[in-house]
Design a protein around this nucleic acid. Structure first.
Lengths: 385, 385
DNA sequence: TCATTTTGTTCTCGGCGAGAACCTAATAGC
DNA sequence: GCTATTAGGTTCTCGCCGAGAACAAAATGA
């Protein structure tokens, strides 16, 4: 239950709502519009914004008038206000970006890495290079489950129980780390195709499938922060053993590894991803064997989506990574297989299956969202004001 | 986001918190304890309780002293305060009960029915018999998915798109209807073995498997209120076709239908449930064929639980219905099969698998909870005060 | 009997948002 | 170009809320 008891709490609560509205808005919000949105009076809005401006959290600038009536002001990120850094750590490369309140993103640096946890030291150094007194929080997306927000597991890199606290260390801006697929889903829910949905699913299809359940714009984490390994459910009857230690995982039939297996490639390597892209291109060009590989991938994807829809009843499902191409090339096949997996009475209203719109920036944008979540709350705000 | 803006909202918000605390408490809460629990002053607590007493929502009675200090008062349900009725509609029988604030339950009536939706008219009449001006809300648990909170589907009864509004009708105390397995899970999360868990799963195993994902004490509903059909995911590789229209459902290998199939019984009939109980008894007595049937059931159950734990990362999993017996007789087998389905790095901390403690009253208690949820909120309270 | 402990009660105080009244700055129509 | 209209900013009062302090009351225990 929300801890909100006194009238002083009310003020900071409404200020947090206001900041959140500014951050979430598609385009700059005016003060008058914000007042209407929050259902508060113009006088109250003026007082709230005034304090936020004094705290260097918002900056008011005159808005050009759009019609009759006295012109209002735009609520923008304060030029000296908090910013967050977001990092996306992929299996052989990384990117660091800076994000303003409101979501404006600037890529700062990127690089390759040696597939060892030393990459986190590299990111720490890069962060220090771009660190200033405006830096309020740091969000990191990693390509594997992060147990308890701290211990990272990536089986195909041989990272087992990598303790992130050892690499990121203390004496640092508040840092939050999470799984890339979950963060991509969060980005989609906050700023992409899943905006406004109550219940939705997102899957990032790369070597295998990671995903997240999204409820009212929030990615679900589970009891130990390791929810979302939908790819490791036996949804398609595969008899193979997966690298995760389980037999029959969905991921064995969907994703890059599945796509290239029949062409004799080892799973989990960057070369595999390249080959996967080639197979898609050859399928699109009409090559039969590649086409069958893509068909199988799409059908297995759809079959799993149907099963998950029975259990979780999503309004929409977004797909990123390889999923974008699969939707583009084989939408019909995916939807058909999904319908086959749906209980009869659900087939009249299947979940919408959509390509993710935030795209490759998903993990980075999601990392920025969780970094801002650490700021845009009453507790942080109370300190800052 | 919670709609709470003015200081007047604050009062009713805190009163709702107080009522919720009283309703959720294991044993009667004292006024002083409630103040500590909510983090409010004794003076404020006195004012809140005073208004709630005036509104006939709470009743204060002197508490006998437990040690030093001035004795305080107990906060009890008001003798003229709101009550709810809860009905549990099973496939051939029904029960109606009356529940006070705080959870005290009195069974009122029960009966058989003819397996047609006419049972709802019977329940309506029974409700009218027990209806008085204290009746504030009615909760109904039904043995099938309720799309949009209104349209009921029970394939093995041949109920398809049964419009509950036609049977329950208007001019009635606010009525909420939901799926029995979900409500049993909710009861478990609010008053049973899942109390206090953040992420948990509950499964009710009867003819097949229904369940719910529980997050912070709330059962998830999905986009169309039909989440929770975990039994209709292909988790165990069955090749059979299910009555739901899908091939390979988990429910084909777990539950009463699976248990009795090898003994030649048709699925979905009450006689089947009786036979299921007999098979369990024979297995417990050491009969080999029955024992193998129970073994297979338990193994398939565990295998599915492991898969779902990968995706949803529950802290604990409770089982009701047949699941209680399966846990009692085959805990080891279930846990072993679950571990086999868990990704390697999860096996050190598997989800706890527990028998439900609310028991057969689960759907009824869950129905009471959603009925009280319609009351214990600021909106209803504002009207009432 | 009296100190101690816990809670109830009363009163003051600062703070919050609503709402009304008024002011200001733009446009649209003539 | 003048003026009515419109929308938003500004200022002030008001009712309400919960905190906190001071005190009263009711129990225990030495």
């Amino acid at each position: 239950m929300q801890q909100l008891k006194t009238s002083a709490d009310l003020r900071v609560h409404n200020q947090a709502r206001l900041l959140r509205a500014v951050h979430d808005a598609d385009e700059p919000l005016t003060r008058a519009a914000a007042a209407r949105l929050l259902g508060i009076g113009r006088n109250t809005a003026a007082a709230l914004v005034g304090e936020l401006e004094a705290a260097r959290l918002l900056h008011e600038v005159g808005a050009e008038s759009t019609g009759r009536g006295r012109p209002t002001t735009l609520l923008l990120a304060h030029p000296e206000g908090p910013v967050v850094l977001a990092a996306d750590v992929r299996e052989d490369s990384w990117t660091l970006a800076r994000i303003e309140l409101g979501g404006q993103l600037t890529e700062l640096e990127s690089g390759e890495h040696d597939r060892t946890p030393a990459v986190f030291d590299e990111i720490r150094r890069a962060t220090l290079r771009h660190s200033d007194d405006r830096l309020a929080s740091l969000g990191i997306a990693v390509a594997g489950p992060v147990r308890g927000g701290r211990r990272l597991h990536i089986s195909h890199l041989g990272w087992d129980e990598v303790d992130l606290d050892e690499h990121i260390g203390a004496g640092w801006a508040p840092t939050v780390v999470d799984n890339d697929a979950r963060l991509a889903g969060l980005a989609e829910a906050r700023r992409g195709a899943l905006r406004g949905t109550g219940t939705a699913l997102h899957f990032h299809i790369d070597f295998d499938i990671g995903g997240t359940l999204l409820l009212a714009g929030d990615a679900q984490r589970g009891a130990h922060n390791i929810a979302g390994e939908f790819g490791h459910m036996p949804l398609t009857g595969s008899g193979l053993r997966c690298m995760c230690g389980v037999k029959g995982c969905w991921s064995l039939d969907v994703g890059t590894n599945a796509l290239v297996r029949r062409f004799g490639t080892e799973p989990g390597h960057a070369a595999g991803r390249e080959l996967g892209r080639q197979v898609l291109a050859r399928a699109e060009a009409g090559e039969a064997e590649a086409g069958r590989a893509v068909d199988d991938n799409a059908a297995a994807l759809g079959r799993g989506l149907g099963a998950l829809a029975n259990a979780l009843d999503p309004e929409a499902i977004t797909l990123s990574g390889l999923g974008v191409e699969l939707v583009r090339l084989r939408r019909g096949l995916i939807e058909e297989a999904c319908a086959d997996g749906l209980m009869e009475f659900r087939r009249a209203r299947p979940p919408r299956i959509l390509a993710a719109t935030v795209g490759d920036l998903g993990p980075l944008r999601g990392a920025a969202e969780i970094a801002f979540d650490a700021i845009l709350n009453p507790e942080w705000l109370r300190e800052r004001l």
